[in-house]
C-alpha cells in the first residue's frame, strides 16, 4: 500500500483541479468496478460483490489537496496568490512550489535581517508573500503562468522508520485504501466515491452522495494527530501507531453511535478521536436526502495540510482492515 500512497501523493491535485489524480485512480480501478465521473469531477464507482448487500453502502475518500491559486502577475514578474484550503502561513513561507505540475517557483518574503524583533514574532500577512519563478518581468512570467493556475508546496514522499513523510497524505491515504478495497474481491456490493473539493467546503461529496443515495457511509480520511512534544495529554486527539481514529463527533458531524461502537469492538487496532475538532466529507454525506448513517475512519497525520505531514504505515494497513470489517459487517447485516 505504501507504494500506492507514494504514487498518489506525488501527483498534484488542488481542490477544483483534481484531474491528474482522477486519471491515475481510474487507471487503477478500471476493470475492477463500474465507474463514471460526474459534472464536478467526482468518480462514482459500483463494486459488484459476491452477494447483494443488506444495506446500500457508500465509501468515500477525497482526491483534492490544499494548495495555492495564482491571482496576479506583478510588473516585476512576481506572482501573487491565495491559498486553496486551510494552510498555515508558516507552511508556505520560503517554500518551493510547483505550478501546473511543471514550473518551479519559490515563495519569497523579507529576509530575517530586515525584520525587527517585534515583527519576527508574528507570522507575516499572507498577502505580503509572493512567488518568484525566476522571471524578470511580467511578460516573461506570463510565458509560463497565468492567473487561475494552481500551485502546490513541494513535499516529496519519503519513508522513515515505518512512517511516511509527504504532502497530500490527507487524503491520498484514503484514496489508496479505497482503491485497494475495489481491487480485491468483495463479499458484498458497495458504492465508492472519489470526491473533489473537500478542502473548500465538502462540495464534491455532496453531489456524489446525492447521486449514490446511500443508506450508510464510510468516510476514509486523514485527521490531525497532536501527539507531539509540548502538547498536553488531553489535547493530543490521536496518536500515530495506535491505529485509525474513529470519531463520535467533530465540527460537522455527530456520527452513528452503533457504527462507532462496532468499530471500537472490531478487534482491529484503532482509537477513538479524542476531540470534537475538524471535519470531513461526513458533514456533507450524513445530511444527504433523508439522512445517511455515517462513520469516519481517519488515519492520524501530524502536520496535516503541510508539505511534510507524517503518518504511520501500520495505521494505514489497520484503516484498510477496519474499513473492510465495517463494509462486511454493514453489508452482511451483522452490524445493525
Amino acid at each position: 500500500m505504501t507504494e500506492l500512497i507514494s504514487a498518489l501523493c506525488n501527483i498534484d491535485g488542488t481542490s477544483g483541479d483534481e484531474i491528474a489524480v482522477r486519471d491515475f485512480i481510474i487507471s487503477e480501478i478500471d476493470g475492477f468496478c463500474e465507474w463514471k465521473t460526474d459534472a464536478l469531477g467526482n468518480i462514482i464507482a459500483f463494486k459488484k460483490g459476491k452477494k447483494p448487500s443488506a444495506k446500500k453502502l457508500m465509501i468515500d475518500a477525497h482526491m483534492d489537496e490544499v494548495g495555492l491559486i495564482i491571482t496576479d502577475v506583478t510588473a516585476e514578474g512576481f506572482l501573487k496568490f491565495k491559498t486553496v484550503g486551510g494552510i498555515d502561513i508558516s507552511a508556505i513561507m520560503f517554500r518551493r512550489v510547483l505550478i501546473n505540475g511543471e514550473t518551479a517557483g519559490v515563495i519569497c518574503g523579507k529576509p530575517i535581517h530586515l525584520i525587527d524583533k517585534k515583527e519576527a514574532e508574528k507570522p507575516p500577512a499572507a498577502d505580503s508573500l509572493y512567488i518568484d519563478i525566476g522571471a524578470g518581468s511580467k511578460s516573461e512570467a506570463e510565458d509560463y503562468v497565468n492567473p487561475g493556475d494552481r500551485a502546490v508546496i513541494c513535499g516529496e514522499f519519503t519513508v522513515s522508520n515505518g512512517n511516511m513523510i509527504s504532502k497530500a497524505l490527507d487524503d491520498r491515504i484514503g484514496c489508496a485504501i479505497l482503491i485497494k478495497l475495489i481491487k480485491v474481491d468483495s463479499e458484498y456490493d458497495f458504492y465508492a466515491s472519489f470526491s473533489v473539493q473537500e478542502e473548500i467546503g465538502l462540495r464534491g461529496a455532496k453531489t456524489a452522495a446525492y447521486a449514490i443515495d446511500p443508506e450508510c457511509a464510510l468516510i476514509l480520511e486523514g485527521t490531525t494527530a497532536a501527539d507531539i512534544a509540548g502538547t498536553d495529554e488531553g489535547l493530543t486527539v490521536c496518536n500515530l501507531g495506535k491505529g485509525p481514529a474513529v470519531s463520535f463527533m467533530d465540527n460537522s458531524t455527530a456520527y452513528d453511535r452503533k457504527f462507532y461502537n462496532a468499530a471500537l469492538k472490531s478487534g482491529i487496532l484503532c482509537q477513538p478521536k479524542r476531540a470534537v475538532a475538524g471535519g470531513n466529507n461526513a458533514g456533507a454525506v450524513h445530511l444527504t436526502r433523508g439522512g445517511v448513517r455515517t462513520l469516519a475512519i481517519s488515519v492520524p497525520c501530524r502536520y496535516i495540510h503541510s508539505s511534510a505531514s507524517i503518518a504511520n504505515i501500520n495505521d494505514c494497513e489497520n484503516a484498510y482492515e477496519l474499513a473492510r470489517y465495517m463494509l462486511n459487517g454493514i453489508c452482511g447485516g451483522e452490524i445493525e
Binding site: 498555515d88 508574528k122 513523510i165 509540548g230 501530524r302 503541510s306
Partner: peptide, 27 residues
C-alpha cells in the same frame, strides 16, 4: 516563523530526515 512543518537533515550517526513541529489547528 518559517520552520514549522519544514523538513531538515539531522547529521547524527546517520543522516535523519526530521520535521519541525507545527501547532495543530485546534490548538
Amino acid at each position: 516563523r518559517a520552520l514549522p512543518s519544514r523538513r531538515v537533515t539531522v547529521h547524527g550517526r546517520e543522516k535523519v530526515t526530521a520535521v519541525f513541529c507545527a501547532t495543530p489547528p485546534h490548538l
